[in-house]
């Protein structure tokens, strides 16, 4: 007999995990939807974000250095994204997908090994901000404060990105550049610059995800981006490639399915993610909110 408090806690675990994955998948989906690039290096951007936060925390001696580090990481990751797009990815637009995959996968390995050379292979500690330690009562059960916070913050950021892309004037330019670049160009839009900034935004989201997730993983290592990448792809496939709302929906579905599986048979919690992806691919190959066919 499973208690209701355990079931609720597992559902919360699922949603929290799903939102965090959705945050990462939002960047991946944004890059694919707008630039048509399948970015295998996204996992290493997540990893660099976590290392940037750690580095900032070592260099700073101010109260709330985790949060300051997280804020500093955002523009730093955008710069990393800008450089990758400007010097590497730009040559891949319009090329066969296999070239994009080879380039971004190669980039993943290069970044991973570079981080190992710079920071070493020993896990680096990135503890939780002290004000977010411990648990909070949610009526029937208690839940870790930091997890609850990342869940709320993650949802807010995803909503913000969605609002920016779908409702703002700048978002309209990005969408126009993605859907009909030729017309956008004739209307005076510098599409190249739009692509660069879109990639920078996706990279910043990946770095933010890495920084937020780091206190939960008990030691940074250069390999942390590899496993997360696979889950991000599952989220994107379930939600629909190129759709931000799809990434959120995919993440939450994945998380809840994973959480409920955890109630009855915890070892199956990873297996069910792949099963869910397989079922969605069979029923709706373009994903739940995917439009099927992008630039």
């Amino acid at each position: 007999m499973v208690n209701i408090d355990v079931i609720l806690a597992q559902v919360f675990n699922g949603i929290q995990f799903g939102v965090l994955m959705a945050l990462l998948a939002t960047g991946l989906s944004l890059i694919f939807g707008m630039l048509g690039i399948i970015n295998f290096a996204h996992g290493s951007l997540y990893m660099i974000g976590a290392y940037f936060v750690w580095t900032c925390m070592q260099m700073l001696n101010v109260p709330g250095k985790f949060w300051v580090g997280l804020i500093i990481t955002l523009p730093l990751m955008a710069i990393v994204g800008l450089m990758i797009e400007r010097f590497l990815l730009r040559w891949m637009y319009g090329q066969p997908v296999v070239y994009q995959i080879l380039l971004t996968f190669g980039l993943l390995l290069v970044i991973q090994q570079s981080v190992a050379l710079i920071y070493g292979t020993t896990p680096l500690p990135l503890g939780m901000p002290s004000s977010f330690e411990g648990e909070i009562s949610l009526g029937l059960f208690r839940y870790p404060v930091y997890r609850l916070f990342t869940m709320i913050l993650g949802l807010a950021i995803i909503f913000g990105v969605w609002y920016f892309i779908e409702r703002s004037a700048l978002g309209a330019i990005i969408r126009a550049s993605a859907e009909d670049p030729e017309t956008a160009k004739t209307l005076g839009v510098n599409t190249r610059r739009v692509y660069t900034w879109t990639f920078a935004l996706g990279s910043a989201l990946a770095g933010l995800g890495g920084g937020l997730h780091a206190p939960l993983i008990g030691g940074l290592q250069h390999t942390i981006g590899t496993e997360i990448l696979l889950i991000c792809f599952i989220v994107v496939v379930i939600g629909g490639m190129g759709s931000i709302r799809g990434a959120l929906l995919g993440g939450i579905i994945l998380g809840i399915v994973r959480g409920i599986a955890g109630v009855f048979w915890a070892p199956a919690s990873d297996f069910v993610m792949f099963a869910a992806m397989g079922i969605i691919l069979m029923i709706r190959p373009q994903g739940l909110l995917g439009r099927g066919g992008t630039r």
Binding site: V6, Q10, N13, I217, E227, G262, A266
Partner: peptide
Amino acid sequence: AIDVSVFMTE
């Protein structure tokens, strides 16, 4: 695995 929260809750 990158998260073991389900195991910890169990």
